[in-house]
Simulated assay, not measured.
Amino acid sequence: MKRMTALVFVTAFVIGACNTGDKKTDAAKDKYEQTKETLEETEKKNPARFLTVTGHDKKNLLGQTVVKGMLNNTAKVASYKDIEIKLFFYSKTKALLEEDVETIFETLAPGKSAEFKTKYFAPKGTDSVALKIVGAKGE
């Protein structure tokens, strides 16, 4: 009888210990998914925080200002599309001459980059162009 009781206790303990491990694994998976969702929500709400733009400009033969640039997505989860860039046209004395908004109709996956090119008839006296991310749609 003592052996039977001991066997029942040992079996119950082993079964209980096995189930506890599954609960820990499930809890860890749930926490990971919640963190991932929270990260994705944060990235989608703040595209300007996770997108960067660099570029340079030059004049072509027609007198247009050609702006070539590179978009980078530093987000870990979120993809962005229809990225809006604000262009600032400055004179030699750094006076702001004009502002324009350009939309780049591409989808940029997490960790990826994309090149773009646009042309403008910039205001007279333009010496340089600055670029800034204004917004984007989360995909």
Rank of each mutant, 00 (worst) to 15 (best):
L87D: 02
K31L: 06
E43Q: 02
A109M: 12
K31W: 05
V101K: 11
E33C: 05
S128R: 03
K92W: 08
E106Q: 15
F116V: 03
E98Q: 15
A28P: 01
L96G: 05
Q64W: 00
V53Q: 01
P47D: 05
P123F: 10
F116R: 03
S128T: 12
A12N: 01
F50K: 04
K45I: 03
K29P: 00
D30H: 06
K36F: 02
T38G: 05
A109N: 06
T126Q: 03
A28K: 09
C18K: 11
F105I: 11
K124L: 15
K124T: 11
V67D: 00
K124Q: 04
K68G: 07
S113N: 09
A114L: 06
K94E: 11
K124F: 10
G111P: 03
G16H: 07
P110Y: 01
S91W: 08
N73R: 06
E37F: 02
E98P: 09
F50V: 11
A48T: 14
K94P: 07
K76I: 06
L39Y: 04
K117C: 07
I133P: 09
A95N: 10
T93G: 10
D22C: 15
A28I: 09
F50Q: 01
I133D: 00
Y90E: 13
T25M: 13
I85T: 02
D57V: 13
L51K: 08
K124S: 11
D127I: 03
K29R: 06
T35C: 06
K124P: 01
T35I: 14
K24I: 12
L61K: 12
G135C: 07
A136I: 03
S113W: 04
L96A: 05
N46S: 13
Q64R: 10
G21Y: 15
F105G: 07
I104D: 05
Y80C: 04
L108F: 10
G63M: 01
T54M: 12
D82N: 15
K68L: 10
K58A: 11
I15V: 13
L87M: 12
T126A: 03
L131S: 01
G125T: 04
A136W: 06
I104M: 04
T38A: 12
R49W: 03
N60K: 02
P123Y: 11
